Simulated scan of single mutants.
Amino acid sequence: MKAFVHEYGELKLKEMNEPFADHGQVAVAIRTAGLNRRDVAVPNRRGEDAGALILGSDGAGLIEAVGEGVSEFSVGDEVIINPSLGWYENTEAPPKQFDILGMPDNGTFTEYIVLPAEQVEQKPAHLSWEEAGVLALSALTGYRALFTKGKVQEGETLFIPGAGSGVATYLIQFAKQAGARIIVTSRSEEKRQQALELGADRALNTNSDWPVELREETIDIVIDSVGKATFNHSLEVLKKGGRLVTFGATTEDTIELNLRKFFYGQYKLIGTTMGSQEELRAMLELVDEHQIHPIVDRTYTLDEAHDAMAYLKASKQFGKVALKITN
């Protein structure tokens, strides 16, 4: 089978042995896979002497084979892959055995993958293959950040620095269904307009003076994945006692914090990452009930995986980037 791997410091397409579905496992023929920031970062975390690892956390496809003991799926079922490994119940933090598909285990940028049956879920019928393939990781991250950790309430105002990320596009749609007011930022006028069309109520230029622009707003919750470049600016616009939820650091991950200002403001700083199987299923119910569609910015073929990685790394996308694996 063909796969996109990181091997001995190099990203490349490689022919790999097709895996076999053992007891309790299913083999999935991948139709589409989704790129995430994690895929760009993984090669930097592996040594140049590391052997072949198939990248990719997100994917959707057809059940190709089922191992002994699997009764909940049949050959031909359309499924999405849950990239959150070993985390089943919705707990305050992931258990020790938690990991993310795509390192150290082989991921989804391949024609076939074998997983425990508990790691796949039925594909929402209204989603295209491209939409299904980019759903799980970002949508699950956004769901947990917004509902489990952020505890967003109807009528509250949510502020999202950076409107173009995949998670941000899910946050906008989920928060809209929750009855929240949504304010986003972007340096790109095109992305600001796209965010408004998706459901945001306001879209600011990232380079504007946020406290001045938002002086008439009450920001109840900020969900920030940018890191150092926006963290303290986000605190400036957050109401006293408000919640700042963070799950990423696309800029530097070390910040300087005025501790006195922070505790006098009685802010709540909440960390989160990914989510549990329980939350994934709740997210899928939300997506199905409200017929929510992931925003797919661009689709590449597996042969174009290098170009797809470069496009994502440059942050040119609004929404998700997909890889078409098979027809």
Results as ranks from 00 to 15, higher is better:
Ile160Thr: 09
Asn205Leu: 15
Arg260Cys: 00
Val287Glu: 11
Pro94Gln: 01
Phe263Ile: 06
Glu48Leu: 13
Gly69Leu: 13
Ile183Arg: 07
Ser165Gly: 15
Leu286Glu: 03
Arg202Lys: 15
Gln97Trp: 13
Met283Ser: 12
Asp201Ile: 11
Ile80Ser: 05
Glu89Trp: 02
Arg46Pro: 01
Val296Gln: 05
Ile54Pro: 10
Gln291Phe: 14
Arg243Lys: 11
Thr250Leu: 15
Ser71Gly: 06
Ile255Ser: 03
Val28Met: 06
Ser186Lys: 05
Gln193Ser: 15
Ala310Phe: 09
Gly155Phe: 00
Leu53Gly: 01
Thr250Asn: 08
Glu130Gln: 11
Ala249Glu: 02
Gly241Thr: 14
Leu259Lys: 05
Glu217Ala: 05
Glu10Phe: 14
His126Arg: 04
Lys240Met: 10
Glu48Gln: 10
Ile295Arg: 09
Val66Gln: 00
Glu154Gly: 14
Ala175Asn: 04
Ile172Trp: 10
Gly133Ser: 13
Pro116Met: 09
Gly166Thr: 14
Asn36Lys: 06
Gly9Arg: 12
Ser128Lys: 02
Ile172Pro: 05
Gly56His: 14
Ile113Asp: 01
Glu156Trp: 13
Leu11Val: 09
Val296Trp: 14
Asp220Trp: 04
Leu214Cys: 03
Thr206Arg: 12
His290Gly: 09
Thr250His: 02
Phe262Cys: 00
Thr206Pro: 00
